[in-house]
Design a protein around this nucleic acid. Sequence first.
RNA 1: GCGCCAGUAGCUCAGCUGGAUAGAGCAACGGACUUCUAAUCCGUAGGUCGCAGGUUCGAAUCCUGCCUGGCGUACCA
Length: 552
Amino acid sequence: MIRSEVKKVLDDCFAHGVAEGLWSDEAAGKFTVELPKHEGQGDFSTNLALVLAGIEKKNPRQIAQLVAEQLSSHTDLIARVEIAGPGFVNIFIDHDVWRRLIPKIIDRGAAFGKSSVGAGRKVMVEFVSANPTGPLSIGHGRQAILGDSIARLLEATGHDVFREYYYNDAGRQMRVLGESTRARYLELLGEKFTFPEDGYQGEYIVDISRSLIDEQGDGLKDHADVTPFKEQAERYIFKDISSTLERMGIVFDNYYNEHSLYENGLIDDVVAELKAKGYVYEQDNAVWFKTTVFGQEQDRVIIKSSGEPTYRLPDMAYHREKFRRNFDWLVNIFGSDHIATVPDVLAGVKALGYDPDKITVVLHQFVTLTRDGKQVKMSTRKANFITVDELLDEVGVDPVRFFFMMRKADSQLEFDLELAKKQSQENPVYYVQYGYARLCAILRQATEKGFAEPQYDADEARLLTEPEELKLLQTMSTFPSTIEGSALELAPHKIIFYLMELAGQLHSYYNKHKVITDDLPLSRARLCMIKALQVVLKNGLDIVGLSAPQRM
RNA sequence: GCGCCAGUAGCUCAGCUGGAUAGAGCAACGGACUUCUAAUCCGUAGGUCGCAGGUUCGAAUCCUGCCUGGCGUACCA
């Protein structure tokens, strides 16, 4: 918040300099206000003089002198400025400016950090989208948390968010699922059975078969059609998936069934439209989409010679529906194994006359799971995979959410099971939550000792002079821009890092300075700041779906 | 072969889209509980930012070429 004020002042100074003929306006928009890395380099610093020097071919330190003179007249905001290094202008903010943040934060309360940059923007976040062939695996877990956190961040910045799960309950995979279930069913009944070659071997299939026996006895043993097995499996697995999602605090606005695209004729419709526009042709009995027109290396089949569409066709139809449903922004969260589908869908969307720039795809890399120092290969078909449910049982919801958010999507995420279990006491999530609990403890203690609800007083606030206090205030001031950046970049890990930083500063402060002392004015001032910290930490945890325990 | 992603401390990862002296957490070592919660803090140690060029006042960050790992490269999804 303060940074943007500084930027505004700097912009004024820059314009003023242009008006006075000190420099041309060529540098407009090229200079920045940043947070210096090291102590003693001011609260903010600007490279304006360096940028100007490059353009004007002048000595950067001389120009810095001019910039500094302009800036130092803004005494309401800036206490002093310094020229340093090759020509940076370091800006020291008046301490009162930081202190005045406290009432602003407390007054805004739960709304502090939220913004309206996304107001009026309808955005769909599509994520998970796992077909109902088994329980959610670790990889799905990452995607679920990533997608949900992104959705939450977009909500916090005023977007009108719609969470959607796209799934397919038809096709070969589901047929194999039905056959696997039938095989286990027959096995349980002691009948002869043949397990499908690439069938699903998980224990959950046996559970499903058992439930069929409970409901229908052996009445299905001579049933030639796999449909009842398939349907039972789908019902069962979907229930399982949604309960897992619910445990993580994830609720979808809609589950979109791929199959409905066929029923509504939307698949045929897309083919017809592409055909009419000349983007498809037939060859070897298959229908090809001219993806080469859109810059790809080779054309792609959208209808196989068997007459069955490939996955690309329904994907295109689905995305066209997204556009037709009037979303301004389409965010797709995919695993990196789906990377090949992205260009095809984008080409399809473009061919159908929609703007592919409205789609942002977040590709996340895989989660590698290690147990006893060895990597566990995960396969949905084989039985040896860890489900999200098991993970939740072992380490709890908050650590699972936290861990999956800790890494940026581009990075592979290593999840060491042993470590996750062993460390459950010293998990970074507890570090942040403990900070919040501590703040609550201080405020409880204050109440017991007869302090009234913290009330900001400008004079008392001047007693906040410790470097740790000013640092905390500065960090709090960047909360709104951190949320906004994290949301617009679709990068929840930034919030996690912010929270760890803020909690760290708090813990250091706590160990060094006592809030409640015999010095009543100072105690009141500090309690006010603690109250503001509590607001920030609570909001931060809330926004990414973590709980904020008052005691630990 | 081609495309995408990654390569930063012993390990796991940040690094604000080009800034000043490279950051955190684990792990290691040494300290701090008569105190608002020690699930905490303080200190020490740890680096050729994969390699080599290039762009400029300035590069972990941008461009090129290699090397290594992951994921793709289907008439599977």
